[in-house]
Amino acid sequence: MKKIAGKESQKRKSRLAKIFMSPAILIQFFFGWLPIGMAFAVCLFHYHILKPEEYVGLANFQDLFADPLTFQVFKNTFIYTGMRLAIFLLPVVVSILLMEMNKSTIRIMMYLWFFPIASTASIVIWKWMYNTEYGLLNSILMSLGLPTLRWLNDPRLVIFCLILPGILMYGPGLIYLATLQSIPDELYEAAELEGAGFWSKVWHITLPRMRPVLAMMLLLSIIESMSVFSQPWILTHGGPNNASMMVVMRIVDLAIYSMRYGKGTALAIILFAILMVIIIIQRKYFKEDIDR
C-alpha cells in the first residue's frame, strides 16, 4: 500500500519536474545543442550573397589551409595562451602570501588586489595608457630618459601588451582566497607540531588542497585564452599587420564583415578540435579531481 503511494507520488513529482525543466530544455535545445549540431552542416556550404547556399564539401577547409592568415592566427593564439599560462600562478602566489598578513591587512588588501572593474573599461584604460603620443607609459619612459616604445603598434611587442592588463586587472584571486580559507587550521597545526616549515606546509598541505580548484582554473584559463576576443579586438583590432589577430576574431571577421559563414564555421571546428584534445587530456590526468 505504502509502496504504491510512493510510486504515485514519484509520478506526480516527475510531472512537476517536467514542468519545471521545460523552459530550460527548450533553451538548451535551441541555443545549446541545435547550433552545435548545425555547425557541422554549415561548414560544408558556401553562402552566396544573392544565390541560395551551395554544397561544397570540404572546400572551406581547403580554403583555410591555403590561407596563410589561418596559420598566423593560430600561431598568435598559441603564443598568447603560452604567455597567459606563464602568469597563471601569480594570483595563487599572491593569495598564499596574503594569508601571512594580519587580519585587517588581509581585508584591505583583498579589496585593493581583487576588486573588479568592468572589463571593457579596463581594456579601454590600457588603450589610453599605451597611447604612443599622450599615454602614461610613454611619458614615464620619457621622463626617465628612456626611448619611447610603440606599444600596440609594434608587431613584436603587441602580444606582450595584450598580456600586461591581464596581470593587473583581472584575476580569480577571490576563488583562491576562498579555497585557502576553507583549508582546516588543524592540518597546519598538526604539521607545525611535527616541525614542518613554511615550504613543506605549502607543498604538502596547501597545494594538494588547492589541486582541484587549480586544475579547473587551469582548464578554464586555457579555454579562455584560446578563444580570446574582446581584448585584442578592442586594443588592436588585429593589427599591426595581423600580428595580434586571434582565431575567434578571425571567425567573427569572416562571419559579420565578409558573410563567409561556411569558412568561419570551418575555422571554428578546427579550434573546437584543438580544444577538445586539450580538454580530453586534462580530464584524463585530473579525472579524479573534477569528477568528485
Binding site: 547550433p35 548545425m38 555547425a39 575567434v248 568561419g264 571554428a268
Partner: peptide, 13 residues
C-alpha cells in the same frame, strides 16, 4: 564543448 563552434549557427539562428 567549446562554445565558439556554435557562434555562427547561433548568429544565423
Amino acid at each position: 564543448i567549446p562554445g565558439q563552434i556554435a557562434l555562427i549557427p547561433t548568429y544565423l539562428l
